[in-house]
Design a protein around this nucleic acid. Sequence first.
DNA 1: TAAAATTAAACAAACGTTTGATTAATTCAA
DNA 2: TTGAATTAATCAAACGTTTGTTTAATTTTA
Lengths: 205, 205
Amino acid sequence: MITDKKEHIMNAAIELFAEKGFEGSSIRDLAARADVNVAMVNYYFGSKDKLFEAIVEYKASFLRGKMDEIEANTSMTEIEKIDLIIENYVAKILSNPSFHRILHQELLVGDRESMHENIVKVFVRNITTLRNIIELGIKKKIFKKVDPELTMATLIGTINQVMLSKAMCNMLMHRDGNFDPYTDLAFRERLTKHLKQVIHSHLLN
Amino acid sequence: MITDKKEHIMNAAIELFAEKGFEGSSIRDLAARADVNVAMVNYYFGSKDKLFEAIVEYKASFLRGKMDEIEANTSMTEIEKIDLIIENYVAKILSNPSFHRILHQELLVGDRESMHENIVKVFVRNITTLRNIIELGIKKKIFKKVDPELTMATLIGTINQVMLSKAMCNMLMHRDGNFDPYTDLAFRERLTKHLKQVIHSHLLN
DNA sequence: TAAAATTAAACAAACGTTTGATTAATTCAA
DNA sequence: TTGAATTAATCAAACGTTTGTTTAATTTTA
């Protein structure tokens, strides 16, 4: 069971880890930010590593979103499904930038092996759903014969690229450093529109 | 001037930081791996932070590759230039996975501000070259009216996605965990081919 | 009052960095 | 050309902090 206090600590940790990285954040930093005693983190989670695992487990389902629902829907065409997944995925990631960030930090550092594996599993499950749809589209000859795996890399990679660094994103978009693209609705629509364009011209004839 | 020994330490550091992250790597780890005394890192570089800065400066030009040369070439069409940049960029990144990795770790962690800025600058310079070509193509009506900034995000993001995690990459590609996609020539061609396909159908009519 | 939550204090280990001594190589005066 | 002086490189040891974690005492809750 997740108590209010545990949740409070996890949310503070997500923000802190996103800013300073897991190794770069100390438990004392975290305790100060969450306004709890240093001992509480170990009391509730056992260790700093286990706190990270708890965070991933706590938030992982969140990333999944409506994937299953969309895949199972029989009244939509493949391209409609992909459009909907794009909208969903962009919305999910843009509204959880910190969590998305720490997942990718962990992937990029890639030390703690079991943690790395867990995160890969979360992504792969999402990715597989998407791949099934693409392959079905190819089979039905609605889609061109593309490289399904790398098509997914393109879709997810574009979003990740934008999420990589606020500073870089703003420089790319000719915005000043204070602008927060992740909460800007117009930017979300711009990204969604671009992704649909890319994927459509790539998949459709 | 960069002596052999400095270079030796920097190369060892690139590998170590890529594996364990900057914060996750201790100077003692590094000294052991490079087979030098712990004091040598501070002797040669001043501090752990300055070692990182030295690495970025030392390797930054490497990323740039033949960008200028390609941009200045007047006997190529815009799409030919982009194809060449794709080939170049993929080759560069795949042959320096560790350096690419630590740059992105730093972008994702994003604490040390001046370092963050420096790295963003390196990328932005490369990106601007590409954007100029895309915008020229649009002006000449060779290219469709696309979103130039996000088109670059797609190009670079796809490569980054593949570089993010060897484990993830292999799971995506149905390879076992021991396979190293980054040194595999067939994989490089597959990635290059996919990128060209995506960009062509996105840019051309 | 018994269990759970919270605290300040303490723990050993690891951290980046500095030190002062020692060695090896180079320069310079006679 | 020799021997002293200077410089650079290397080392083991120690520096003061900070780290994650634990303890033991205290407060709060039910």
